[in-house]
């Protein structure tokens, strides 16, 4: 299209008319979608209602609850996650690791925020140790009550988020090599335990009942660290800075290297 001054008024009118038509079409389309989705929602609710009123069929719950004494833990959810469906949990840790690798491969982390004021810094120095303590408690309590590696890892990740919001660009995480090692720790320990059991003749991730508790605790401890590091590093949103040079390259304001060690 050539833009000659004499026709620009007509063009503008045409553009406005086209935009109005497009907006109208979009509105019609979203209305149509709303109607269709309402119908789908009603159908889903009906199916759900029927499923609830159906006579109770065979469920996994009885089997799962019945075998809990042989799993080494007393919390049935932990038994499902770390014993019956340990494969799922291993793959889930792998998904988390893959997401983190994806984030790291997209480039260096954006600059941190400005440093916190005195009040926020004081609050952070109270809250972060408490979060780490709570994470340890969550990890241990997962054996017999709601809790476990994911909850504990989420608390550690939250501690990292708070530290970064308070102005530490690395979210309190250790250096690049330690971060890489910690983030694969969950998958590594999980897979090694599985392979060791396979080698001993029990089958991949089939724990002998006498050792199950300690193996699960070992796996969960490693998974907690890995999940916490992965969540905090995902919040940082980029490859950890190796050398000051790369920080300078990404270099907006506020990116300053500082001693890490909070949060660990």
């Amino acid at each position: 299209m050539t833009k000659d001054p004499g026709r620009s008024g007509a063009d503008a009118r045409n553009d406005a008319a086209a935009a109005a038509r497009a907006a109208e079409r979009d509105r019609d389309l979203s209305l149509l979608l709303a109607v269709l989705l309402t119908l789908i929602g009603i159908a889903l609710l009906g199916i759900y209602w029927l499923a609830l009123n159906e006579a109770e069929g065979p469920r996994l719950a009885d089997l799962a609850l019945g075998l809990v004494p042989r799993t080494g833990v007393d919390n049935p959810v932990t038994a499902v996650l770390l014993n019956y469906r340990a494969y799922d949990t291993l793959m889930e840790l792998a998904v988390l690791l893959a997401a983190l690798l994806g984030i790291w491969s997209l480039g260096p982390a954006p600059a941190g925020f400005q440093r916190s004021g005195r009040a926020l810094a004081a609050m952070v120095s109270w809250v972060v140790p408490l979060l780490i303590l709570a994470a340890g408690y969550m990890l241990w309590v997962g054996g017999y009550a709601p809790g476990g590696a994911f909850q504990a890892g989420a608390l550690l990740g939250a501690a990292g988020v708070i530290v970064r919001l308070a102005g530490d660009p690395s979210a309190g995480l250790p250096g690049e090599h330690a971060q890489r090692a910690l983030s694969v720790l969950g998958v590594l320990v999980f897979a090694l335990v599985g392979l060791a059991l396979l080698w001993l003749g029990d089958g991949f991730l089939t724990y002998p009942p006498s050792l199950a508790k300690w193996l699960i605790l070992l796996i969960e401890s490693a998974a907690t660290l890995a999940i916490g590091v992965a969540l905090a590093a995902a919040y940082v949103g980029g490859r950890p800075a190796t050398a000051p040079a790369s920080t300078l390259a990404s270099g907006k304001a506020g990116a300053r290297t500082e001693p890490t060690g909070e949060g660990n």
Partner: peptide, 15 residues
């Protein structure tokens, strides 16, 4: 007690 299998699925799904 509630069925632990869907609960574990939710925990997995959240992460």
């Amino acid at each position: 007690p509630p069925d632990p299998v869907p609960h574990a699925l939710v925990l997995t799904g959240i992460v």
